[in-house]
Design a binder for these strands. Sequence first.
DNA 1: CGTTTGATTGACACGAGTCAACACCAGTGG
DNA 2: CCACTGGTGTTGACTCGTGTCAATCAAACG
Lengths: 250, 250
Amino acid sequence: MHNPMILRLEHGADLTDTDRTKLAELSASWHSAEAKIDLIREYEEPEHVRIVLEGFACRYKILANGRRSIVAFLVPGDFCDLHVPILGEMDHSIGTITSCKVVEISHPAINDVTERFPRIARALWWSSLVDEGTLRAWLATMGQLPADKQMAHLFCELHLRLKVVGYVSGTTFPMPMSQEDLADALGISTVHANRVLQQLREDGLVVLRGKMLTIPDPERLTEFAEFHPNYLHLNRKSKLGRAMPEEPVT
Amino acid sequence: MHNPMILRLEHGADLTDTDRTKLAELSASWHSAEAKIDLIREYEEPEHVRIVLEGFACRYKILANGRRSIVAFLVPGDFCDLHVPILGEMDHSIGTITSCKVVEISHPAINDVTERFPRIARALWWSSLVDEGTLRAWLATMGQLPADKQMAHLFCELHLRLKVVGYVSGTTFPMPMSQEDLADALGISTVHANRVLQQLREDGLVVLRGKMLTIPDPERLTEFAEFHPNYLHLNRKSKLGRAMPEEPVT
DNA sequence: CGTTTGATTGACACGAGTCAACACCAGTGG
DNA sequence: CCACTGGTGTTGACTCGTGTCAATCAAACG
């Protein structure tokens, strides 16, 4: 099963084959989105829930001074707007970073699924709560850690999240964010993002070639970043150490 | 109806009298908690869901360097750990700021209510999603705004949230956080928090006497802070302008 | 009343922002 | 095929917001 959404949701509930089949069915028809476009904008009230099946995107807000603040990265398998059926209006925008494959599911379809498939409902609930935990972790690191550790923390998180959906081979994974994206996510200037990234490379903590990032010594990076993955709540499955099949994905 | 939880949840769903009665029943038996103690600690798996009926508390994380990061303030009517039934382990701690009245509801009781009272279920879902929106707003302001605007933004938010639960009279409301609390929430040093707060007072943006904060000119403060309350998703009810009864609470 | 916690102040250091230039592609079009 | 372009990454010089350390003051408290 290569569907990243399903791979991820497995961590949120004990899915059955029936559940998986239903999820696969839901994500069968996707459409493409270009890189660097908005999928949804703040104040809109989207008609459906979207899932990123392939590619990278981000949640962001534009502040009054014109600056962009990225408040989350979306990787394959992530939901864009599970909250919309309840909240109505978007309180942030979602934009693609790379080109993406996106699934759209109507609200009625979501309601139907959550009513008929309680384990899926639980997994969606879990997914939303993990997003919340991730926000808390970002807030804590952004508030208290210097920029180099923040960036290292982000890389640790991406490493783990991408491993879950099978995008990591060895300790190498795609990291298509530009330095501006990183800067907007960490709340620093692009110039500073550049310097911090250089420092991490000089120190041998990360290797960045093309858009692929390699972590030569994950333990060292984890310690440096003060990264504690508990907020991702992946413990339902075995430790992830090498428990996940390492299937490189194009 | 003076129950702050109910006042708040009214914004998340169209509650009926039956719903309100049930909610009142759930929060009938509370217990007191002292100021400056932990209600729940990270890594624990609490047995029940807690609600702050009276008093102020905060969610926080302690980082490896020993610093405390406050990632949310809890005001009367807020839930402590709605997510625990799904996530299991806490990924942060909750500590009181003032003494509090706290309600504890067992997981089975919560499950029972959400199954039998769909509007309440929807309101709880809403509550959790608003928490998430608030985290996004904090992350954006913390990342991009200077400390003085951050603090002003926090005051605007507290003003509105407390107005919903009837804790605002005129434009004055309780603000019992110490400067250290504010500093830990904004990710700045206590010294800087002190100076920023002084500046806001000098500029006449806020008046702080005792533990009561007054906003002489809400519009001016809102503009200064670049505060957009859309992330609190209170629009279900009328504008809140003076729609809320102004009932000062001790 | 001493003791303690929280608020305030000053001097100094440093992380990070800003501005501005320049280098390095990849894509485009003549 | 090669200039031109725009996006991205890189670098240096200077400024400024904030942190740190340390001392003092004020108010709350047992």
